[in-house]
């Protein structure tokens, strides 16, 4: 099994946007090399949780530690912390006025002050590995949704983050492009990256996760291995949530047969 070094610790996190609690007493540890998949119904606070981790949202109480250091303080230097936390969003978030290469190199050159040549060589290596080297001079508008998301992943990866956060990165994609993005994430998981993934792709969740966290109404209701969670969920709400998926699948199959 993977080593048990705590990388990220979330302790009694409360978040409120001003109209009722969105996260209620959320506590969760992520260990080095671990892949945690967060699932739960829409609006339950999954995005909010990820956004709190990299400081895009203010929290009301509780704390978050990265490498044992509290990052939810006023004096937190977010620019430094965020270099250790890669994030990919649901909507295609590439910078539309820059080529693929410039998108990827912005962080290394402007934030980390790395040598452009050296960073570019690395960018090309990664692009090649995911089959996008021929797109290095393309603009985002010339890419498919799946390609954009893969570039967005590379842009985060090249910063060599300690943990990667993925917020429904395939939710806005056409079905035939979902796979190519999930494959990149699977590859990352295999290579030992620490990841927190929010997804509605249940089969993928089952394949990639070391641990499933079920979030509902801003609370963590279950934390379990994928095997146990998907075969024997403990709470009724998790059962109901999983049922909505199998219902969907059966209806689709039924639809095709007609």
């Amino acid at each position: 099994m993977k080593e048990k070094e705590k990388l990220l610790e979330i302790k009694h996190l409360h978040k409120d946007y001003g109209n009722g609690p969105v996260l209620k007493d959320v506590s969760l540890n992520v260990h080095k090399g671990e892949v945690v998949v967060i699932i739960g119904p829409s609006g339950c606070g999954k995005s909010t949780l990820l956004r709190c981790i990299n400081g895009l949202e203010q929290i009301q109480s509780g704390k978050i530690l990265l490498d044992g250091e509290v990052i939810t303080e006023n004096k937190t230097k977010w620019s430094e912390v965020r270099q250790k936390i890669g994030m990919v969003f649901q909507s295609y978030d590439l910078f539309p006025h820059m080529t693929v290469t410039d998108n990827i190199l912005l962080g290394p050159t402007k934030v980390q002050g790395r040598d452009k040549k050296e960073a570019e060589a690395e960018a090309e290596r990664i692009l090649e590995r995911i089959g996008l080297l021929d797109k290095k001079n393309a603009f985002p508008r010339q890419l498919s949704g799946g390609q954009k998301q893969r570039v967005a992943i590379v842009r985060a990866l090249i910063m060599k983050p300690e943990i990667m956060l993925f917020d429904e990165v395939t939710a806005a994609l056409d079905p035939e492009m979902v796979r190519e993005v999930l494959d990149v994430m699977l590859e990352l998981a295999k290579s030992g990256s620490t990841m927190m993934i929010v997804t509605h792709e249940m089969q993928f969740a089952r394949a990639v996760a070391d641990r499933i966290v079920f979030l509902d109404g801003g609370e963590i209701l279950e934390t379990d291995t994928p095997e146990k969670f998907f075969t024997r969920p403990k709470t009724d709400r998790a059962k109901r949530f999983l049922n909505t998926f199998s219902f969907h699948m059966e209806r689709e199959r039924g639809g095709k047969a007609i």
Binding site: E80, R82, S91, F95, Q112, A156
Partner: peptide
Amino acid sequence: IDKVQEESALSIGLKHGQVMRYVILPQ
């Protein structure tokens, strides 16, 4: 300019001034 542009620029560690200069203003 969509909010996610600013957020994704911040999330790779750019400071607010850099976000403005390299991401928001050119667009």
